[in-house]
């Protein structure tokens, strides 16, 4: 999705009168989960998912994303705090709220001896708000949206990991939803499937559905999300629009030269903090400095500059800075 298209869709969504003034899709205050083992899996998080947003819920494996989602949906009892979904207090209003929420939690789970279609029919039958007269149509549509129509009659046992994931998403789409909570929806999908899920999330968001998309993969979130929250060891360490997060990233200056030590000395003299040298390149945080001024000083100091580059740190760097480690390492 191009930046222009995303901006357009955000604008379109924010003018929807049904949404303005109706609060956030999800709001938590100090939600905490301490397991009986004493481990604090989620530590006082204040999650705010605005209506109409596609919220990327990021964090390494084991950072508390799934535990948070389980608390949101009322599967586990929170130790402290409060939260609301679609403007109603949870878990008290679960019976009214959850029919409007589609969820994929920690991977798909279905009865292996039933077909995909039968599995969806069972979930639909369990829903007291669903209309039995439209069940067949809705199930058919959900299967079609995830590309499972051809395999609908096959037993779940025979499904590949990707097909199972798709069926899980289809289950979340059985009803029109105000909010979709998708926990790692592209796990096990091939690149083609990942692209399709991304397209699906975008089309749902265009229709006005708020999406909470959890992932440990930055690339997934980067391309579809309007908002991002980053979890690290049970804490929500950052939250905001994806643009905010990008601006929070400190741009860095790269200088390639045959005399890197001299270049570093010049930068240090100017007050640029801690320039580092490796393999003929000097890298430093730009800080408040004008790149033009730095370059002029370097040239005036007779440093032979082969390349001078300022890059806006990409989100990957921001996440590494926030979580203090590689993104795929569990925290």
């Amino acid at each position: 999705m191009t930046a222009t298209a995303r901006a357009g869709s955000v604008a379109a969504r924010s003018t929807d009168p049904a949404r303005t003034g109706s609060g956030d899709a999800i709001r938590t205050e100090g939600r905490t989960k301490r397991f009986r083992s004493g481990q604090v899996a989620v530590d006082r998080i204040d999650l705010v998912v605005p209506r109409g947003s596609v919220y990327g819920f990021l964090g390494p494996n084991g950072s508390g994303k799934t535990t948070t989602i389980r608390m949101l949906l009322g599967l586990i009892t929170p130790t402290a705090g409060s939260h609301s979904m679609l403007g109603e207090p949870m878990p008290r209003a679960a019976a009214d709220v959850l029919p409007r929420v589609g969820a994929l939690v920690e991977g798909p789970a279905f009865h292996p001896h039933l077909s995909g279609r039968r599995n969806l029919a069972r979930l639909d039958a369990a829903d007291r708000t669903s209309d039995p007269r439209t069940a067949t149509t809705r199930i058919g549509t959900a299967l079609e949206r995830v590309g499972l129509t051809a395999a609908a009659g096959k037993r779940y046992r025979a499904y590949s990991l990707g097909m199972r994931q798709r069926l899980g998403i289809a289950a979340a789409l059985l009803q029109p939803r105000d909010l979709l909570v998708l926990d790692e929806p592209t796990n096990g999908l091939d690149p083609q499937g990942t692209r399709e899920v991304r397209g699906l999330v975008e089309s749902l968001a265009h229709g006005g559905t708020t999406v909470l998309l959890s992932s440990h993969l930055l690339s997934e979130v980067d391309q579809v999300c309007t908002h991002v929250g980053v979890m690290h060891v049970g804490r929500l360490v950052s939250q905001g629009t994806i643009e905010d997060l990008r601006t929070a990233a400190v741009p860095r200056v790269h200088v390639r030269t045959s005399r890197p030590d001299d270049a570093a000395a010049v930068l240090r003299r100017l007050g640029v903090p801690a320039p580092t040298v490796h393999s003929g390149e000097v890298v430093a945080d730009l800080g408040p400095f004008e790149p033009e001024a730095l370059l002029r000083e370097l040239v005036l100091a007779d440093v032979p500059v082969r390349e001078f580059r300022v890059d806006t740190a990409d989100l990957e760097d921001v996440f590494v800075a926030l979580t203090g480690e590689g993104f795929d390492v569990s925290g």
């Binding site: 049904a18 029109p176 899920v197 089309s203 006005g208």
Partner: peptide
């Protein structure tokens, strides 16, 4: 998922009504 664009998503609007039914049983 080829039919993504063809099926316009519909937003749930009002509070869903619960009915007594033996479907789940």
């Amino acid at each position: 998922m080829s039919a993504v664009e063809a099926v316009a998503p519909v937003r749930a609007t009002s509070r869903p009504r619960r009915v007594v039914s033996t479907r789940f049983l």
